[in-house]
Nucleic acid binder design. Sequence first.
DNA 1: TTGAAAGCGCTAACAG
DNA 2: CTGTTAGCGCTTTCAA
Lengths: 340, 340
Amino acid sequence: MASVTSLDVARLAQVSQSAVSRTFTPGASVSDATRVKVEEAARKLGYRPNAIARTLITRRSRIIGVVMSYLENQFYPVVLEKLSQRLQRDGYHVLLFITDSRQTDAVLAEILQYQVDGMVMASTSMSSALALRCEEAGIPVVLFNRVSAGSENTSSVTTDNYQGGLLVGQYLARTGHRRVAYIAGLEDTSTNQQRERGLRDGLAESGQKVFTRAVGNYDFEDAKAAARSLFAVKAAQRPDAVFVANDHMAIAVMDTLRIELGLRIPQDVSVVGFDDVKQASWGSYQLSSVVQDADAMIEATAGLLMEEMDGANQNRAVVLPTRLVLRASSAPRTPTKDRK
Amino acid sequence: MASVTSLDVARLAQVSQSAVSRTFTPGASVSDATRVKVEEAARKLGYRPNAIARTLITRRSRIIGVVMSYLENQFYPVVLEKLSQRLQRDGYHVLLFITDSRQTDAVLAEILQYQVDGMVMASTSMSSALALRCEEAGIPVVLFNRVSAGSENTSSVTTDNYQGGLLVGQYLARTGHRRVAYIAGLEDTSTNQQRERGLRDGLAESGQKVFTRAVGNYDFEDAKAAARSLFAVKAAQRPDAVFVANDHMAIAVMDTLRIELGLRIPQDVSVVGFDDVKQASWGSYQLSSVVQDADAMIEATAGLLMEEMDGANQNRAVVLPTRLVLRASSAPRTPTKDRK
DNA sequence: TTGAAAGCGCTAACAG
DNA sequence: CTGTTAGCGCTTTCAA
């Protein structure tokens, strides 16, 4: 309980408090003699430097605020895990905020009080205005998997969502699908908008349009409802493929199609998702999906953050390339009556 | 950027610094007049109290350190999300540490430097010695979903793992299974040991023993290998049921049984898991599982933590009751005809 | 290389 | 209710 201070150590080691500070400061100049004395005294007393006091004077907390909105979609836990480890490697720590869109304002105020050195915002539902306010406060912000709607002066790291959608549209058209449906995520997110736009353009290259469309809001249950609304129609009206805005929803869709509606995948309908989460490769789903390279995204995020914390004020938008992974949930339509 | 201080606000509002402090301290006595003046000045300057400086003097950071080992098992992200929200509700924040067992020592040192008010350890692979060191440092610790191996002077919150295993053993025996296998998690964890002991005792009530056993280490791939080793034998040697130490592995096992080994679930083999994660109820799995009530666990954890932070030093072990949820992955054996 | 002294921004007595 | 005064534990000039 005792809360041993650097002064206690100094006294025991018979040196000044500064000497103690220096031995615990990586690049400081201390003679080996004093360093040894200090280290021994510190060990003896069980001394641990107080990071809070250090922060107060150095004005660097080595804390990064991370804001996320929901961890149910497996993509985000993985990101959080990797991000945390990546930042730990550089001596930073993660102050975590889970929030739905309603509380963001209050949350942000709190996060700022902790003098975070930087922030990562992976919350899809967070208003861009907030990112701005952080920048105003002089705190580097990196938007993860989303871009700033209002202005372009916040750094961001995203997968090329447009390209991902495009690849899906091209692929589905090329493989003979003629009634391609889309199940959207949250309508007001950049990810959803770009994925859909990509799909549309990809299909357009073959003169097709999106056949039908429903909204799943990146939510499991909403996605099921969307699947029902799209597929509970007579066979001729039924899509022969569906691109779902993320894997989390795509899995809900697959379950609904197979179990509730008795459809076979891919024979009756091809399903393609986005993210390539672990579960997409699970045996029961084998979901074709657009890959988001979480490692690369994390690396870019950490890199941007470090640069900005070093003073570089370059607000860059990193857009990572992507690719389509094909699995058993999608297959070419039998070419008999289609051009091929 | 400017870092507005309470002194700046005080000057603008023409009051003392203490007045500013008091208006930002919930239960302090300030007249409405000064409060208004201060609030206006604060707003004008964009002032935010510095939580770090406050921590230094109040010696309460309102930060809780949360240590987890891996978020791949969906149970943990959900816990993290709920825990974070629960603590936020009481004005606490989560400093997150993801760690594998090797780095725990270093990690712990860092966490302590941040003067956390308390800690939650949900890392299954963390040595109990570390929890002890925190207690020594006077920091309340609650072990989540694990118990202290060495000593009993650390609080913990667990599901009744023994009871869970017992229920499964009784159920499988009662429903006519005669060759019940077990796939273990990490052998040295309390969760695994108690679940297995429960299973054994539950089967013993009907004069049965565990038929075969393999180790999955709570790992997806290891679980697949375990399933292969247990089931790639001739039919007469094959288990007619398998209890898997958690759902994360159980899903891997189901995929392996069905796809690699061509077995039908539950006709050829019943599968039961533990945790009742979201995915257990997914249509493709319909996994029978022992429920861990995450909400109750979180509530108990937060409760213990708050009590201990208020000075109560009662090291209690909360053990929550559990129940078995039956889904389509398990079914009674029909005594005569269904022996493939 | 070392120590003395001066704060970082805030809160907590203590008078008034 | 309000202001004054002293620090919280640390780092950092600045001399020595």
